[in-house]
Design a binder for these strands. Structure first.
Lengths: 244, 244
DNA sequence: TATTCGTATTATGTTATACATATATTATGA
DNA sequence: TCATAATATATGTATAACATAATACGAATA
């Protein structure tokens, strides 16, 4: 049973999708360019309109094409992120991917420093200052942790980095962040103040003003310490269990 | 014209998609759980099977459900990334998003340090060593830059970080990286050796072995310097032009 | 008794056709 | 000339029918 190769089990829609992508590339179509009508594809590819529609629907779902109601379809710049916001609901996800996404947020915030410093403007700094002041006024008693303020501050950082895809990502990760946060708040809160090197939003902001990407990364690492700790501590717990 | 509200312009498929998602949440369905048949939805929602199919197809395209051929559909853990690899072809993308994605890669590699150090194993280090040695042997004359070796090394780092979503991301960014690299190679290559603080793969590897996340981030920043520079220099060029 | 084969069942995959509806263009009428 | 109406067009939706693959179950065979 060696010289016999498996037949392709691809569905017609699969094949048509591939053909469509080839067509776009071969004809060097770019975002904004109109594409042929469903019926034209039906003729040239020799399959039913349903199949064409399903293949096109996939590409639409992924944001590669857009249908101008009743007038035709055009290629579009795929918005990689926003399509997923529809389905990325923590209540629909398994714990594995939630963990991955939460980690991804930490990675992004640790990694964005250079862009932050390169692209910050005076206006950005003023707005950031306002956010911090607002936050300090509201919970001057420091007795509770406000998720809104947390999001306002960190969201502003993403905005300063001025990368649309990155910002879209933050929007995507927001519900995950909320979800994980709600589950862990008590411990988080305790940790924040038991840590010897707690870094506040104000300290981060000052760092952006007068520091360097390098100093900022270290500050951010301490700011995020509770999250890193909770991830790593749990892993150590699990591994020590499995060793027994 | 105040008391009249705009009618919803959503298509039937849009509405059905929303209903399906609500259904999944309300019934607390999780990845792995089977979902009702197309015809059952047809009856309970009162629309044609066509519409049900299109709505389900969207969710399949996004990776939220999976169809077991001819046996039904189940909820799945959405693979956020891999679905996009189909359409994320540099030749189909505009320059804006390409730039964003390239930047994203830099952010990820700068931000992953803590996970790298937390999760590295002896096996990982051995494999990384092998990659570096292999690379050094092949282009001992240092006269050319091998994309393959670059990918092997950095890909291994993603792997060590042990975050599936992150690894998927790297796969996604790979064609973008290749594309940008091919366009910029001459300058890149020159830059690598004109910079005073060039950090090789070997130096990065040694850092992973004996350093800390902090030292590694600094090393990685220097390793990626050519890329950061090319992005920031171009921005400064553009802004100085627009000021004139 | 256990294995294999055939068959019924079932749900998705595919085709075909018709009609609905929104948009742009063209034709019509005052 | 201008507003209105008719028309063409492309996608959106509905319906019916058949194809096909996966599974389960029962019959045939050793």
């Amino acid at each position: 049973m060696k010289n016999i190769k498996p037949i392709d089990t691809l569905s017609l829609v699969d094949k048509v999708e591939i053909r469509l992508l080839e067509f776009f590339k071969n004809n060097n179509l770019k975002p904004g360019d109109p594409i042929p009508k469903e019926l034209e594809f039906t003729e040239s590819l020799g399959v039913s309109r349903t199949v064409i529609r399903e293949a096109l629907l996939r590409l639409r779902t992924l944001g590669l094409v857009e249908s101008k109601k009743h007038r035709g379809m055009v290629l579009t710049e795929p918005d990689i992120i926003n399509n997923f916001s529809r389905i990325l609901d923590p209540s629909l996800l398994g714990t594995g991917i939630l963990k991955n996404l939460f980690e991804l947020r930490l990675i992004l915030e640790m990694g964005m420093a250079d862009f932050l410093f390169e692209r910050k403007t005076q206006k950005d700094l003023d707005e950031l200052e306002e956010i911090v002041v607002n936050e300090e006024e509201q919970d001057s008693d420091k007795s509770h942790f406000s998720l809104d303020k947390e999001i306002a501050f960190h969201g502003k950082l993403y905005q300063i980095s001025n990368n649309k895809t990155l910002q879209g990502f933050q929007q995507l990760l927001l519900p995950v962040f909320e979800y994980v946060h709600l589950k862990n708040e008590p411990q988080d809160f305790k940790h924040r103040y038991s840590s010897g090197r707690f870094v506040t939003h104000r300290m981060l902001m000052e760092n952006i003003k007068v520091g360097t990407p390098e100093t900022f990364r270290n500050a951010m690492r301490h700011h995020l310490e509770p999250h890193f700790d909770s991830i790593f501590k749990e892993e150590q717990r699990n591994s020590s269990i499995s060793e027994v």
